[in-house]
């Protein structure tokens, strides 16, 4: 079919989303996309989801950290932000989502807000709450295994 004239084509906004989870979380593009759609469906309903028309453009995730590029229709960015904020877990794994910024083009969004990983994570024992415990340390964040479950910490807690 012939392309729509320019003034009738949808205008898009691209949201850069930072992701964080426990180090053993296994997030994939597919599961995150499903979580995004469910979240939009549940918060905004079918009409609202159709208006925001969210789609996942880019996704990367490894070792408890990642980022995603979500496309939303211009004028529905706040609804998109709300739907994204309501993603609390993906396939049972708790995640933190933070919208880092919004741009009008994929390229501007990538250049300004993406590619901020804090590097590789290291497995080592740290002294936490009175004894040595296994932890995954990534930049200035450390996820510690304790008897009572996992605890998020930083070097201030063990150095």
């Amino acid at each position: 079919m012939k392309h729509l004239p320019k003034h009738l084509r949808p205008r898009w906004r691209y949201l850069a989303v930072g992701l964080e989870a426990w180090p053993d979380a296994d997030l994939s593009r597919r599961t995150f996309q499903r979580a995004l759609w469910y979240s939009a469906g549940n918060l905004l309903g079918d009409p609202g989801s159709a208006d925001a028309d969210l789609s996942l453009f880019d996704f990367s995730f490894s070792e408890g950290e990642g980022e995603a590029l979500v496309r939303a229709r211009h004028g529905h960015v706040e609804a998109a932000r709300a739907a994204i904020a309501c993603i609390s877990d993906v396939d049972g794994a708790p995640v933190r989502v933070t919208v880092r910024g919004i741009s009008g083009t994929v390229r501007a969004c990538e250049e300004r807000y993406m590619g901020r990983g804090s590097g590789n994570s290291v497995r080592r024992d740290i002294a936490f709450a009175g004894s040595d415990r296994p932890a995954v340390v990534r930049g200035d964040a450390a996820d510690v295994e304790t008897d009572a479950g996992r605890v998020g910490a930083t070097p201030l807690d063990f150095e």
Binding site: L43, E78, A79, A82, A85, P94, R96, T98, V99, G152
Partner: peptide
């Protein structure tokens, strides 16, 4: 209850608007 459950102020404002609060 964990750092993963924190949401930024702008996110909370957007969620608030979606559920009937003003930003």
């Amino acid at each position: 209850r964990s750092h993963l459950q924190l949401r930024a102020p702008r996110e909370l404002r957007a969620v608030g608007e979606a559920i009937g609060f003003s930003s």
